[in-house]
């Protein structure tokens, strides 16, 4: 089992750091899955997380100049690691002017991701700073815990409003209530609502547009034949939504959510080379 990767381009490094910063805001501990072509940051549905799950996928070619991965076995050519993304975030934080950043999986005393940052310095040789980030190697028999979650059989799928606007609103609503209702219909309308003894606040978004999902031949989606005005709604923990929005550092190319009434809200945020899915379960 072997992993070595290198980033030389500053723009790629900045981009990668931003992705890691976003992940670090969403999960204290998560799983990093390495394959030949992709990296995945995975948080699986756990009661401790409030049932939230996350699936973030990156194409390694868009970030790394060198990428060598030899998995656990020939027929399981992948590596699954558990780590604290905040460590990676901190290691990359002071690397912003680096000549190169190398990441390598090592096991000197215990498994670590060794991040070596080569920085310019006034002396003849470069300054090299290394960060040993402890990881746990996840054995194969546990890999099934980290399958890609299937897109739920949603009732409504809708594009999100400008995330910046949504973030301001949700932050204010968080001061007023612990939970928020997201409702949307297939006419491009979405409402965010909070209600307490003291106050009720509803924000109305229009003309958001509903994404066209390619329909499976046999699959009868719950969205098919649905009344366009009818709202699907779910009441969720407002803090989870606020965390998702606060973690976004760059505007995604596409942002949408899928709602199953009273069950779950599935967010999909797509950038050119990164996709992030985030599932927030509805509250009882």
């Amino acid at each position: 089992m072997r992993f070595r990767a290198k980033i030389v381009d500053l723009a790629c490094l900045n981009h990668f750091s931003r992705v890691i910063n976003t992940i670090a805001k969403l999960a204290k501990t998560c799983t990093l899955r390495l394959t030949v072509n992709k990296l995945y940051f995975i948080l699986s549905d756990r009661v401790a997380n409030g049932g939230v799950s996350m699936w973030c996928e990156l194409c390694q070619g868009n970030f790394f100049d060198e990428f060598q991965m030899e998995g656990v076995a020939a027929d399981n050519n992948e590596i699954y690691l558990e780590l604290m993304p905040d460590n990676l975030s901190r290691a990359l934080k002071t690397a912003q002017s680096a000549k190169a950043v190398k990441i390598k999986l090592t096991n000197k005393y215990s498994p670590c991701l060794k991040v070596a940052v080569e920085l310019p310095s006034l002396s003849r040789s470069s300054r090299i700073v290394t960060h040993d980030i402890p990881v746990k190697v996840i054995p194969r028999r546990l890999w099934s815990d980290f399958k890609e979650p299937s897109v739920p059989d949603f009732e409504v799928s809708i594009y999100l409003p400008l995330l910046k606007t949504m973030k301001s609103i949700v932050e204010r609503m968080k001061n007023l209530s612990n939970c928020i209702v997201i409702e949307a219909n297939l006419s491009g309308e979405m409402n965010l609502k909070i209600e307490t003894d003291v106050v009720s606040v509803t924000t109305h978004f229009k003309d958001l547009g509903n994404p066209p999902w390619a329909s499976e031949d046999e699959c009868q989606s719950s969205a098919r034949g649905r009344d366009l005005q009818s709202m699907a709604e779910a009441r969720i923990d407002i803090k989870k939504l606020q965390q998702l929005l606060a973690g976004q550092q760059v505007n995604p190319t596409k942002a949408l959510c899928n709602i199953i009434s009273k069950r779950i809200v599935h967010f999909i945020l797509l950038h050119e080379d990164v996709s992030l899915q985030y599932f927030i379960p509805a509250l009882a």
Partner: peptide
């Protein structure tokens, strides 16, 4: 706990 904390190291010429 060993294996919990990140260790940073650097060298100066």
């Amino acid at each position: 706990e060993p294996g919990k904390a990140m260790v940073t190291e650097l060298w100066l010429a």
